[in-house]
């Protein structure tokens, strides 16, 4: 069995508010970059699959050299290998181009039985790349996966989390699964693993290696364009602190405001 975890490097969430539109458009956010928080669950699940069903787990990311750091976090958690996909022509790729690059990278690495992704990236917020990978590879996709029940006889059985309940679904391998937080508790890397990960070479596959022409990806192929980026105008809020001698008095005053002034109850 072979598992490939697709992961993205994203700005540290505490620094997201500081990023300016200019920085974001220039693709240089000036923030500390970390493994996308949602992808920690994907990495953990990729490792657990290996522990449960045997095989190897490979961490894969499309991005520039700085992304090696996120891949090293995945290695430190327990992935066996890491591969990075990069070429200057890959910059500014939209979701489907990113998915194409990842799909070609997976094929070039010899394919996979189970491809694991996170739910979404904290910067792009698309929740679309997993769908793209499955589409480009022409294999089934299972989203909102909260538990891998079993992998046997060439099929995977998972529980998906719906708004209305839990659904059990099976699909033949190879498959793409995108996982939600509820699936596991990501482990902390051990000191020894961190040391080992820091020395592990990470091969890079280029556009030529992946047989991708420049017009298939990047700006050239973009099906959507981000024209303007703005900071949301923070709603002007002036807090009214409700005073009173008793909780009952405060409760009454608050309800007066909500019902009579704001008319929202």
């Amino acid at each position: 069995m072979k598992y490939v975890v697709c992961l993205k490097q994203t700005p540290d969430t505490t620094e997201l508010p500081k990023i300016t539109p200019e920085q974001a458009l220039a693709g240089n956010e000036g923030a500390t970059l970390v493994l996308n928080p949602w992808d920690e669950y994907a990495v953990e699940e990729g490792i657990r699959l290996k522990e449960r069903f045997g095989g190897e787990t490979v961490a894969l990311s499309m991005g520039p050299e700085s992304v090696d750091q996120a891949l090293r976090s995945a290695l430190a958690m327990g992935c066996d290998r890491a591969v990075r996909l990069w070429d200057p022509s890959f910059a500014d790729s939209d979701y489907w181009s990113t998915a194409l690059i990842l799909a070609r990278g997976i094929e070039k690495d010899g394919g996979a039985d189970i491809i694991v992704t996170g739910k979404m990236s904290v910067d792009g917020n698309a929740a679309a790349v997993a769908h793209g990978i499955a589409c480009k590879l022409g294999i089934p996709l299972l989203t909102q996966v909260a538990r891998v029940v079993d992998v046997s006889d060439g099929r995977i059985t998972v529980e998906r989390l719906l708004d209305e309940g839990r659904e059990t679904v099976t699909a033949p391998l190879p498959v793409v699964i995108s996982v939600v937080k509820e699936i596991n508790e990501p482990r902390y890397p051990t000191f020894i693993r961190i040391r080992k990960a820091s020395r592990t070479p990470i091969p890079v596959l280029s556009a030529a290696d992946l047989n991708i022409a420049p017009e298939e990806v990047g700006q050239a192929a973009a099906r959507v364009r981000w024209t303007h980026l703005v900071k949301p105008e923070p709603k002007k809020r002036q807090v009214t602190i409700i005073e009173g001698d008793t909780p009952e008095e405060k409760a009454r005053k608050l309800l007066d405001y909500l019902m009579d002034v704001e008319k929202v109850l």
């Binding site: 700005p11 969430t13 997201l16 508010p17 990023i19 539109p21 974001a24 904290v122 910067d123 792009g124 917020n125 973009a222 099906r223 959507v224 364009r225 981000w226 024209t227 303007h228 980026l229 703005v230 900071k231 949301p232």
Partner: peptide, 20 residues
């Protein structure tokens, strides 16, 4: 078609022009 959507976890709003 032009859409406005939050990105960077709600810390920015992007205006997106769809080319298809």
């Amino acid at each position: 078609v032009v859409a406005r959507r939050p990105v960077y976890s709600g810390n920015m709003i992007a205006e997106v022009v769809v080319e298809t």
